[in-house]
């Protein structure tokens, strides 16, 4: 049998899944729910503060390291889920899932370099 190339995407899936497990609930909470509940002051997300916080190279690196693997994690899991739900056109599903993830990766780079 042919050697599988799955390790390529699976490695990113596993890394992204681990990252998401550690940081995503807190990110969602602090950027959305926490503000509504009043735990996070609305000024915390104000433009001046956000741009200052995100302009440091360390913050950009961190944002990239969090966003990209989690995006690919989701893309890979959805590819598998499509098959589970009876969509067997794996080539097309792969193109859509990984295509969006690739575009998202480029968009993240563009955004971070443009800050």
């Amino acid at each position: 049998m042919a050697t599988s190339n799955k390790p390529l995407v699976w490695a990113v899936f596993a890394a992204g899944g681990t990252l998401a497990a550690f940081v995503l609930p807190a990110i969602i909470f602090s950027l959305t729910l926490g503000v509504v509940l009043g735990w996070i002051p609305p000024e915390a997300l104000a433009y001046e503060r956000a741009i200052a916080g995100m302009q440091s190279p360390l913050a950009k690196l961190a944002a990239f390291a969090v966003i990209v693997p989690i995006l690919w994690h989701a893309a890979h899991r959805l590819r598998i889920t499509a098959h589970d739900l009876g969509v067997y056109a794996d080539g097309l599903v792969m193109l859509i899932c990984y295509g969006i993830a690739a575009l998202g990766t480029i968009a993240t780079l563009v955004a971070l370099l443009g800050l």
Partner: peptide
């Protein structure tokens, strides 16, 4: 064993 085990119908079919 990897020829079968590490192939697509091997471990990689498991979700």
């Amino acid at each position: 064993r990897a020829d079968v085990v590490a192939s697509n119908p091997g471990i990689w079919e498991c979700s």
